[in-house]
Simulated assay, not measured.
Amino acid sequence: MSKTKKRVLIVDDSAAVRQVMSEIVNADDRMEVMATAGDPFQASERMQREVPDVIVLDIEMPRMDGLTFLRRLMAQRPIPVVVCSTLVGAGTKTLDAVVSAGAVEVIEKPTLGTRQKLLDSRIQIQDAILGAAHARVDRRKEFQVRANLSADAVLPPPSGRAMLKTTDKIVVIGASTGGTEALSRVLESLPAYAPPIVIVQHMPEAFTSAFAQRLNSVCKITVKEARDGDSVLRGHALIAPGGRHTLLTRSGANYRVEVRDGPLVHRHRPSVDVLFRSAARVAGANGVGFILTGMGNDGAHGLKEMLDTGATTYGQSEKSCVVYGMPAEAKKMGAVQTEVDLSEVAGIVAAVDR
């Protein structure tokens, strides 16, 4: 077995799912299947001989459910885990439970459908596994085929001037692997008078709604999944829906969001680059951009475009990231004015227009 590839252990009681997941993993030359197991007991036995870099875990299984296994694993031997289940959709308590238990990523099982849906599912799963394989689980506890297109495919580059001058400040945030926990920490710490916020967190369809609802129940600000035409208001945070791009627009001096279909950008839909580019176009120097923990380079170009139009830009520090990928790429491009620890972000956001 190659020493350079990430080793993946697949735990699912369905032989068919294990086969499909194995094909998806082995199709990417950066990782390979170490082993498969039909339940947590078989997985534990296999891990006594060899420890994987990441585990893909189902929830509903015989003898022991995946959630119990996940909790025991994180208590005894923390390993990055991607939960792949049909039980973690919108409105389910299981989604919150697996994230709280320590899952790095949550994805849906591949289903039969059109060729494009299968293609999207395959790349989504590969990205989630690779992102989890690079995650630092200890740091996470401490800090509580998609096309590789650019944002040009969805929105033209900014002209260098915002649509209109305004005194209104607006915050845009992009995150991926480790971002659900990072965003929870930030939003839960914000006061009710926080400036308007729009967020892209890489998540599948249906998951963003449940994520927003959970945050809304614990935050002082209002958190909701963005809908086309929503106003972006003080004391509100809009989260881009999974599977669709979210752009910032203007109606006079008022900010709104446009939610639209479009091609995958940097392997993602929604894309951070698309949101950031739209902020560069309509907010200019009144924009404040944050790029948080995540795998890949989505958001780096858009953050640079924001900076070039006068916006203030921040990147999460390496020591506070689960995966220092997206912030690192943005820093390399010169898009990050200031690096900050995750613990500092809420205070900066709260003081944006004070």
Rank of each mutant, 00 (worst) to 15 (best):
G66Q: 11
K93R: 14
A351C: 04
K165C: 03
F211W: 02
V98D: 13
M333N: 12
D58P: 09
V345W: 00
L307H: 08
I129S: 04
G178H: 10
E142N: 12
D39L: 02
P195K: 00
G235S: 13
V186G: 11
S2D: 15
G91P: 11
M295D: 00
R267F: 15
K332W: 03
S217H: 12
D230P: 07
Q76V: 15
G294R: 09
G302D: 01
V198S: 09
L187A: 07
V218F: 04
D138M: 04
G113R: 01
V172P: 02
T338P: 05
V349C: 02
Q19D: 10
T166V: 06
M64W: 10
R281M: 11
E60M: 15
D228K: 00
I59G: 03
F211K: 08
L303D: 00
A237L: 07
L264C: 07
R136G: 05
K3L: 15
C321H: 12
R269C: 13
R77L: 14
S14Y: 01
A43W: 07
G287R: 06
M34T: 03
E32N: 05
A153R: 04
N26E: 14
A133S: 15
A212Q: 05
I239C: 00
L233T: 09
V336W: 02
K165V: 10
E188T: 14
V17Y: 08
R71A: 12
V288D: 02
L164V: 13
A346T: 10
G287F: 05
S14Q: 03
V11M: 03
D298P: 11
L275K: 09
V259R: 09
G178V: 12
G243C: 06
A97F: 07
G102Y: 04
L73A: 02
A43V: 05
G160Q: 00
V51I: 15
I197S: 06
K109G: 03
G113I: 00
I125G: 01
L112Q: 14
G66E: 11
K224M: 08
G113D: 02
S217R: 15
V25E: 06
N216S: 08
I79K: 09
G302L: 01
S343F: 05
L275W: 13
V54K: 11
D168H: 08
P62R: 10
R140G: 00
Y255S: 03
S14I: 04
A182S: 10
S209M: 12
A226P: 10
K224W: 10
